[in-house]
């Protein structure tokens, strides 16, 4: 139980997917212009990560021990079809949620944080419970980073920024400072 808790904290704060591993930078820089959408996208990504962790565990236990060279291909195919399937399921069961997620749901397929999660957790040999905990932490960490950047960007809209630095350059520098702040979590426990 204690180990699961540390996996959760570690993937959420210390080894934050966006700010330490640089995964999922595209949505992080691309769609972080409003707090509301960033939060929704973060939650949708967390959900897909949980399902992916489940699929990765199944694939890893039943397929990849026989054919390890299929890892990349099988993961990407499974992720793409899972996202498609979830999209259809949500559309059928809850049209309101489907409208709220909008275009972001299909875009999650090309988010490298999802594939990264599957690869990292199989490389570390995580079991079922560990994998799910890892996915939950990583997803929430992604949400936190998105919401933080979106909040800062909303503030910067109101302030007088030199035209030269506006746009991606400024977002990257903000992200760098956020990343420095997150390094402070590295001292939380020693066996990170």
């Amino acid at each position: 139980m204690q180990e699961l808790f540390w996996i959760f904290i570690s993937s959420m704060l210390i080894n934050n997917f966006v700010l330490t591993y640089f995964l999922g930078i595209c949505p992080f820089l691309g769609v972080s212009n409003s707090l509301e959408t960033s939060f929704r996208l973060g939650l949708a990504t967390t959900f897909v990560m949980l399902v992916t962790a489940l699929c990765a565990w199944v694939l890893n236990t039943y397929l990849l021990i026989y054919a390890p060279y299929l890892k990349v291909i099988s993961f990407i195919v499974v992720i793409a079809s899972t996202v498609q399937f979830i999209e259809m399921l949500i559309k059928k069961l809850s049209p309101a949620l489907f409208r709220a997620l909008g275009i972001f749901l299909p875009l999650i397929t090309t988010n490298c944080a999802i594939l990264g999660l599957a690869i990292f957790s199989t490389n570390r040999g995580y079991g079922f419970a560990e994998g799910i905990t890892y996915a939950l932490g990583a997803g929430l960490g992604f949400t936190i980073a998105m919401v933080l950047l979106a909040g800062l960007r909303e503030e910067s809209e109101l302030s007088d920024v030199p035209a030269l630095i506006e746009g991606t350059a400024m977002n990257l520098i903000i992200a760098g400072i956020l990343s420095m702040a997150f390094m402070g979590f590295a001292g939380l426990f020693s066996s990170a």
Partner: peptide, 18 residues
């Protein structure tokens, strides 16, 4: 370390913009 990546790329993009 990770922050250096963000900062360096941000600065290079600045030079490109300029």
């Amino acid at each position: 370390l990770p922050p250096g990546g963000f900062l360096t790329l941000g600065l290079i993009l600045l030079v490109f913009n300029w």
